[in-house]
Design a binder for these strands. Structure first.
Lengths: 213, 213
DNA sequence: AGATGTGAATGAGTTCACAGCT
DNA sequence: AGCTGTGAACTCATTCACATCT
């Protein structure tokens, strides 16, 4: 039976995160030289739910063979394609402070499809510095930087009060997605996906479970 | 009517994250000199759901006055107490590479209750370096470091293959919570809460929404 | 026989709508 | 009159259980 890919908006972030996870597991199996698996096998090895794996995959098509299981290479490729990890994704970092620089080094390496290709900052002391394979440019030149580097994704690592204006600039400059580390709720532009990462909230979640004094 | 605090395990992470968010909003109101608010007022200002605010708070008690609303100072204090942000929480960082060092600087400052007080690494080149107000110590001394610094929370910023052993060490050393940045599912110890932050997964979630070539 | 793919059942989380208090 | 606090309705997500295919 034929299967249309679901509209992007119809897939829940929960499902999407699990697909990333499955892909990571599959890559490990591949490295271990294992060429066939099953939902149950994956569930056992990585403490996942077999039913959920099948349900998640079912949203995108039929990838297995009944009575047999999944071909590791094939499923890896299909998931990579679904998550668009079969194409390179150039990234620009806005705000080359501690966190921005760390992410440049951290994400710049070994991550096949994601590549940090540029970074900007308003601080003249940072402009011109060489970090993780590129030279920091002034934020004023962001539009040029995005065009020249063909950056698709912007990473926002500026202070909260500068986040909205820099987000707007990124959108204006033409990026299609933004990963925001500033602890503030941004007014979103349509057609540009946004994902917030709030390190403080994660810590506060842990603090709740700490025993009191 | 009296209200018992819910058992820690009964509160969903979603609720907890929203409580952190509400607290951040309240602090902003306080800074702006606003002393009274309501669920609707918060919802309007910060694009939240009024009903959800009330439901979230209801899990912990009654904090408002019917017909009136909430006292900003009072609710701020109550939420701070619930999230244990009324006490200091010393943090130790395991793995002082790019990300670890960045987090030390990023979290070390301006975050009232969280304070990065120590960091360890196995790399002799990093040991002895001064970062964000402390001197990096060797990972072998982790137990001593935790005891001396009274660290409650461990932040794991080591490569994936070293994560489990370092997690075990942290647990052994006596921390009560771990924030893990390594992209691997750890085998958890009881009584120690664990929160995973996976930067790659966030990027992959964004990539899915990118237009294809 | 054995594992997939899927409707049906269950559970979690959110929104609605209103009784009850100030 | 107005806003909280809350049961009931609803929506979203996960798990179950089995018909279907190799």
């Amino acid at each position: 039976m034929s299967m249309l890919p679901p509209l992007a908006g119809d897939v829940s972030p929960l499902t999407l995160n699990r697909l990333s996870l499955y892909l990571r597991c599959l890559r490990q199996l591949r490295e271990a030289g294992i060429s066939r698996t099953s939902s149950q096998d994956l569930a056992d090895r990585y403490r996942l739910s077999a039913a959920q794996i099948r349900k998640d995959l079912a949203q995108f098509g039929e990838f297995g063979i009944r009575g047999v299981g999944y071909d590791v290479d094939n499923l890896t490729d299909r998931l990579s394609r679904i998550l668009r990890l079969d194409e390179p994704h150039p990234i620009v970092i806005v705000g080359m402070g501690n966190l921005g620089s760390a992410l440049a080094s951290y994400l710049g390496f070994n991550h096949g499809s994601f590549q940090v290709v540029a970074g900007v900052d308003t601080d003249p002391a940072k402009v011109g510095q060489r970090v993780a394979g590129f030279v920091v440019r002034p934020t004023e030149e962001l539009a040029d930087v995005v065009r020249e580097s063909k950056a698709e994704i912007g990473v926002l690592t500026v202070p909260a009060q500068a986040a909205q204006s820099n987000y707007d600039r990124l959108v204006e400059a033409g990026v299609r997605a933004v990963l925001n580390f500033a602890p503030i709720r941004l007014r979103e532009a349509d057609g540009v996906s946004l994902k917030d990462v709030d390190l403080r909230i994660h810590l506060e979640e842990l603090a709740f479970f700490l025993p009191s004094l």
